[in-house]
Amino acid sequence: MMRRLFPVFFLLLLAGCAREQKEAEFIPLKLEWYAYEGAAFVENETPLSPDSAAERANPCMVSLMRELLQNPEIQKSAPEFDFKVQYYVYKSAQDTLLRFLGKNNLPASVSWNKTPILPGETNANTCFWTAECTSKGKINHLKFKADFKIISESRSASEK
């Protein structure tokens, strides 16, 4: 019995040893940051001055980057990411928040400081997300394919 099983064990051992260790994979992640200075385009949100956004942005950028790096959507999606990231400060009922809007495959020719980044039509090659950063620098609600309400479809369409 043992004699018959020995070649099997031997082959299993060889197969185990021969199995190549999987190399870690890496995703190139490029983020271009824009402090949004344009008019309000989300319902119930009034962007504050760009100066207050700049003050708040630094710790939030680091936190957001950490969240993005670990996010399963990023992890499972395209092999390369090139996000334009817009940020602005607005007041909510509870806190003064820093909102991030990110989207890939956007043209570089547009002035993303003035033009809002909107979800638009998404397909397999586009990725849109939003996130909020609290006054304590914590990222909340990192959402892909966000469903926030735009003030006016026509306005957003025209700006787009």
């Binding site: 870690a24 995703i27 190139p28 490029k30 790096l69 992890q75």
Partner: peptide
């Protein structure tokens, strides 16, 4: 621009 090399989770 800046590109980071993010490790893909297995």
């Amino acid at each position: 621009c800046v590109t980071a090399s993010a490790r893909k989770k297995e």
